[in-house]
């Protein structure tokens, strides 16, 4: 199980708690990636489509960042493998909203 932590507004939108657990399909090399996590998240919670990455360009929204294992993974390619601790569920994949605005 992959663990994903969403920002507060998206928890409200998806009607979930602080953390969701997902079955994520592995890529051809048997790895978990940003893309595979977001695909699984949007499949289970369709109302999140377009809120984390643009529906057309698939680009991460500028005011959101991805963290795991105390690393900023926001600028990693979407098909790069995520740390083993995320793939095993030992550590969550964190989707963080910028602390900005009113």
């Amino acid at each position: 199980m992959i663990r994903v932590v969403l920002p507060a507004h998206l928890r409200t939108l998806a009607q979930v708690g602080s953390e969701v657990q997902l079955e994520v399909a592995l890529d051809a090399a048997g790895r978990v990636t940003q893309r595979s996590i977001l695909d699984a998240l949007e499949a289970r919670y369709p109302m999140l489509r377009g809120t984390i990455r643009d529906q057309v360009t698939q680009q991460r929204r500028a005011f959101l960042r991805f963290f795991a294992c105390q690393e900023d993974l926001s600028h990693e390619p979407p098909d790069a493998p995520l740390p083993d601790a995320v793939a095993s569920g030992a550590e969550p994949f964190l989707i963080i909203g910028a602390i900005a605005g009113g």
Binding site: M47, G50, T51, Q55, R61, L64, A98, G101
Partner: peptide, 28 residues
């Protein structure tokens, strides 16, 4: 909408008491 999370469209069938998100894919 939100500067963080982009655009959503919400629909209500009870005059605004409850809402449900609907489609938000606006592709030119």
């Amino acid at each position: 909408s939100s500067g963080w999370f982009g655009q959503l469209i919400q629909r209500s069938s009870d005059g605004g008491k409850t809402w449900e998100p609907v489609g938000n894919k606006f592709a030119y």
